[in-house]
Design a protein around this nucleic acid. Structure first.
Lengths: 174, 174, 174, 174
DNA sequence: GTTTAATCGAGACGGTACGTCCAGTCTTATG
DNA sequence: CATAAGACTGGACGTACCGTCTCGATTAAAC
């Protein structure tokens, strides 16, 4: 879809500040009305743009080595956040989410939940203390990188990702 | 300062969407120029509004009971995030931060670092495994609630705060 | 024709401002394309709507009393202009005419000329000074009411109509 | 005033169809809001543009020769109507007037009445039949040229102007 | 005690984007 | 096969704010 592509390009090139409906329409060669016909606003466009990129959430592999499996997924997440062009869409979506409750729900249900469920599924099989709350367990893996990314409190490297996994595992496992 | 009060009130009453420089000026009974004379933009105002509220970061108490001390601080953090009126300013600041690198640095240095340092200081004395990276340890306590708050993936209650602390402690301590 | 009826109704009910092609199509239960297939634009529709009303111009009666015959036709004209609902179509057509030369020619030839010719025909037989230019004579009867209607400079009553005729006759006759 | 000049130029160059608020703003180097701050809409701008041109209505001269005095004023009126560039503003104002009652009143009071009063004043002194209604008398001079201009039913020349005056005088005078 | 300078409120200004409406064209599916 | 339905590009609408820029009026300092 030309509109979603235009939105992604604008975000990658110039950031959220220059992502205007008019700019999207102009770049996509489309009338503004067409955009408003199909999307409620900028937030909805960004969400669809993100989903279309097809990070189609796949179940985590179960290699038998929990740490290895988690390292893979956390490294991937951290790497995406670390690349400004890749994370531009996520950043924009986060902004919209913060002042749009309806959008926030959709993002939660369509983007976040599937990702978190995929990790939960892997955690369920991997050996960990039975009393662990899986929701909180997932947040232990995702929350810290997200926090660091948003607030730029530290580097987002593979080593960091590994450290996050190790800490989390120490919490999960007996 | 009338301007910062006006900003806080507008955020509490109507949210970020209606926080405009003109609205702040009107409510504070001030000319727009006066605002621009002292602040670079909306973000700087919000930052000052937040800091003025005087959550002057104090060192965490050291009761000898690490869990109790951490529960206190995490519960307080979670409670503030859970209250829409209290967290409105933080929310607005987060939005600005996401599209303003300069502001992001200031927020990191003036708001976040002190809070995280305070927790780090307590962690340094409380008994935990020596190889723990303190920055990551703090993120383990703060990141998950922040993530949950921003993305509304679950309730922000005292029980949740306690769970976060327990998980983190399991990671820190041998 | 449903389309012309719809146009007339819209004009009578809401005036030129709300006469849009889309409104006409919607009210007539017709696709926009069907309208464009048969008419060049709004102006052409209004013209046809006006003509269909069938003020089929008839020759003026020649009762032998020139004043009586002219009073009849001028009163009728003035009465139609005085009624907002009746003159709505004429008003709309005038607007279109003013910014559409092609339409202006058609209006002149299909609407105006016949009406003026009818009056001219009666003037030819009625006793008047031979050197009178008939075109100007007709304008002397029609121009003032039209001017008064368009610019709302005075009432449009039967008495007024009679006054117009009397003045004109004073000019025509020796 | 740059805005009124821009409006006049656009009308002279391209006609009413291209007289948009945005075009006026662009040509005048002005924000749209500035226009809306001072004028209610296109009609009000055109009215002011017309008035600024300073056709400051002056009393008709009284040379003692009524025909000569009227010929002068009617010729001038007809000449202005005949020149497309000069009459573009009047044409545009007429269009607006036709679908804007409020504006119509202003045009009547600020533009038309003074012009008509000036002619009435001259008619009052010039020798004419006492029972003549002066309002209708003026319309007899102005209405026909206006009608001919709007509906393009004939040429607008000096000879025509003279003919109008002669017919009117025949009506006025004994 | 008067003059001068700085600061303030108020709000006009040139701009940019908003979200809506319609024009006129093009596409689809229905009868 | 023409039609209604309506999506499409395009462009103007009138509004909201942005950040800059005059304006007087009010204070405070300097003389």
């Amino acid at each position: 879809m030309a509109i979603l592509t235009a939105a992604r390009e604008l975000l990658a090139e110039a950031g959220y500040a220059e992502l205007t409906i008019e700019a999207i329409a102009a770049r996509a060669g489309v009338g503004k009305q067409t955009i408003y016909r199909w999307w409620r606003g900028k937030g909805a466009i960004i969400l669809d743009a993100l989903m279309e990129t097809g990070d189609n959430v796949e179940p985590l592999p179960d290699s038998g080595d929990l740490r290895a499996d988690l390292v893979a997924v956390v490294r991937a997440t951290v790497a995406e956040l670390a690349d400004p062009r890749l994370s531009a869409t996520t950043r924009a979506l986060t902004i919209e989410t913060l002042s749009n409750d309806e959008l926030a729900e959709q993002v939660r249900d369509r983007v976040l939940r599937p990702q978190m469920e995929a990790i939960k599924d892997r955690l369920r099989t991997g050996p960990l203390r039975p009393e662990i709350n899986l929701d909180q367990a997932v947040e232990l893996l995702i929350g810290p990188p997200y926090h660091r990314w948003m607030l730029r409190t530290g580097p987002l490297t593979d080593e960091y990702a590994d450290g996050v996994v190790d800490l989390a595992l120490a919490a999960f496992q007996k």
